[in-house]
Structures are given as C-alpha cells and as structure tokens.
Design a protein around this nucleic acid. Structure first.
Lengths: 115, 115
DNA sequence: CTTAATATGTAGAGGCTCGAAATATAGAGA
DNA sequence: TCTCTATATTTCGAGCCTCTACATATTAAG
C-alpha cells in the first residue's frame, strides 16, 4: 500500500496517481477514456501509455482507492469503469497537501518564483 | 546524456539534478558537504543519501555539466570539489524553464492553487 | 473483408534510487 | 596508544516503477 507522502523518491508515481485520482474526482471513467481525456485537457502535455496506466489502475483498485465496475458488453465491447472510493478521496486530499509542501520546498531550494 | 526536459517519467532525476545544480550555483562544494548543506537549508526536508548523490555527481561530470577538482590531501583527507561549467549553467536554466512549465500544467490538472 | 479505432491486458527490459558495506584519514578522549 | 566518531568517497545488489511491444477482442467504416 503506497503512502500519500510526496517525496523526491516517488515523484513520478505520486504525479501519476495525483493526475488519475484528480481526473476521477470529476466523474467515473474507464481507462482508455481516462488517457484520452488527460491528453486533451492538458493539450497533449500529459500522455498516459496504456502499459503504464492499466497497472496503476489495478494497483489503486487493489489498495481500495478506486473501484472498478465492468459495464455490460455495450456497443464498444467490455469496459471497466472506475470511481473514487471514500478512502480514495481522503488519500487524494492528503496527497494534495503533501504536494503543496513539496512544491514549496522545491521552489524555494531551486529559486523558482512562479508556478 | 540526459535532457533538460522535465517530464512525468523523469521527475525524480530532474528534481535531484535541479537541487544539485542550484546548490552549486551558489559556489563550489564537494559531495559530502553538498548533502549536509541541502539538509540544513531545507530544514531536513531534502536529504541526499550518498549512495544516490555520488553516482549523480559522476554522471553530471561525465556529461560536462559540472567539473570536479581533487583538492590536495588536506587535513580532512581527499575531497573532490565540484563547480558548475558553462554548459551546466545553461542546462540549469533550461531545466528551470521546463520545471515551470511542468508545475503549471500539473497544478492546473490537479487543482493545486499555490506553489 | 480489411483496416482503424475502441478497449484491456501482460511480460520483459531498462533506468534510477536506496541500503549496505568497504575504504581511508584525522581529531578527540580514555 | 588505542578506540571511537566524523569526514569523505566509492561501488554493488536489490527493488521499484515505467516503457515498449505483443496479445486479444469487438465494432464501424471503407
């Protein structure tokens, strides 16, 4: 079970988690759509490879932060829709606080003014 | 040769590089002292393990971003003092710009207000 | 009927950090 | 003198995490 702490050692994972949990906070989505939305909303800046995304979703589900439901085999074949759990919302909030702390320290240490 | 681009995939490395290059911009230092200074200046928030720090310094030197000079075997045994090169200064500046871009996108995507 | 888009999954490879152990010198204290 | 602690650097193996690539299945379009 990963911690909500954001440290220098887990920045990449913490970033991916934050992006995913934050996107799911706006409503349930399945993996493929999540990747598309992320790319669109960031104008292509953030791009999840599905070889990265699916394992992360599985892990988040195993940790009880998100919950996946298989939709009936609709017009587009099988899809698994993910939603935030209560624990996931708590986790996301803790992580946001931790990100703020990290960014504050980092900006000061490196001399970044703007954000 | 690593790039100055800050992406989701290399955040940890980019963070370590930025901290080191930024610290060396304030004056030359050798590895051990660099770690101590970093910890002190951030009130213990950033702590470089020497198993991490020295390999990074070697890589930065190999890439020509910093330059190390062995001091005479002074009162404290052998020490290698590192200084930024011209290329290192350029690299640091490019990376700062890249960090700003990343933080901007990230803050917006995750809904972080402050920096 | 073939191609492209939708949709999910896994295995292998590689990059990078961490923990631990090794090496060496010098000063302090017993 | 002997030992312990702090200074100072180095390297190896383990482990985590992402990426590339491959595999699978369905549906709409041409």
């Amino acid at each position: 079970m990963s911690k909500a702490d954001v440290t220098t050692q887990n920045l990449t994972r913490a970033c991916n988690e934050a992006l995913i949990l934050s996107a799911l906070a706006d409503g349930s989505r399945h993996g493929y759509q999540l990747a598309l939305d992320m790319a669109e909303r960031s104008q292509g800046y953030f791009g999840f490879k599905h070889g990265t995304l699916y394992p992360i979703l599985h892990k988040l589900e195993k940790d009880g932060l998100i919950e996946g439901v298989w939709s009936e085999e609709g017009p587009r074949g099988k899809r698994k829709s993910y939603a935030l759990t209560a624990r996931g919302r708590r986790y996301a909030q803790e992580q946001r606080a931790s990100w703020s702390a990290f960014l504050g320290h980092f900006a000061r240490a490196v001399g970044l003014e703007n954000a």
